[in-house]
Amino acid sequence: MKNSVRSLGKVENIKGWLLSGPYWIFAAIFFAYPFVWLVMLALSKWNFISPRKTVWLDNLVKIFQDPMFWTITWNTTRFMLYFIPMVLSLSIILAMAFSKAKHFQAFFAMSFLLANVSSGVAYSIIFTQLFSVNGPANNFLYNHFGVFIPWFSSPSWAMFSIAIMVTWKFMGYYALIFLAGLQAIPKELYEAAEIDGATKWTQFWKITLPLLNSSIVMVMVLAITLAFGIFTEPYMITGGGPLNSTQTFLMVIYTDAFLKYQPGYAAMLSIIAAGMSFGLIILTRKLIERKVEFS
């Protein structure tokens, strides 16, 4: 009896390894190996051509002494301050609008998702044209209000304009997440609240928003990750300017690695950026994540 149980365990064990094996192999090649190489690179001085030299934490010290590091940290913070409130509020409003639609709900949701799947390079070019000094946006503003807005050419406006673009891209996607969250809220809760005399506004603040907590946390996590990985829009539109106001972590990592031939420095910067975004995600979850029960 004991033997048959043991051999059954062995078979299950082998089955387990066989089933998970491809994943382990995949993870080893595409995650573990690049990660180990990234850490080695971060501790090295190299220019892709000459032999690599280990410099231990020199790159880390250099990064903290580099004013550009503080500039991109501040720029990323500014981007998050513009982007997160804007995308959260607009995608919740959009999700609520979707949920009210009686017909073609999926069609509307998918239409807004189109922005998310469109090419970053293509829409960056389109936005550059739309918001240039002689583009339609400024022509409209000038004809109706007599003002021009230097969307991408003013240091105070450029990052905000990029945040607007990125909000447009991700609003539909995040709205889908919120729509799923809204559909999971039991209707009875609203009915009970109405009987108790709660206004729509109170219902939103006391029922909808608290019960959307898990969706909000998820969108926040996605938005923070995105903020540390933003590249195409500033690279295509502003080139990091004006006055470095739209330089981002990825732009500096790319330039340092491939144009200044300092992949070690860039690797260390990428580890720091990843650490910062993970830290911020943990902090966000600690601050806003709540256990939500519908019963």
Binding site: T128, S132, N134, P150, F152, S153
Partner: peptide, 14 residues
């Protein structure tokens, strides 16, 4: 001159 001269400024006469 200006920081932002618009799209294709030479061809549009900007």
């Amino acid at each position: 001159t200006a920081v932002d001269l618009g799209n294709l400024p030479f061809y549009t006469g900007g």
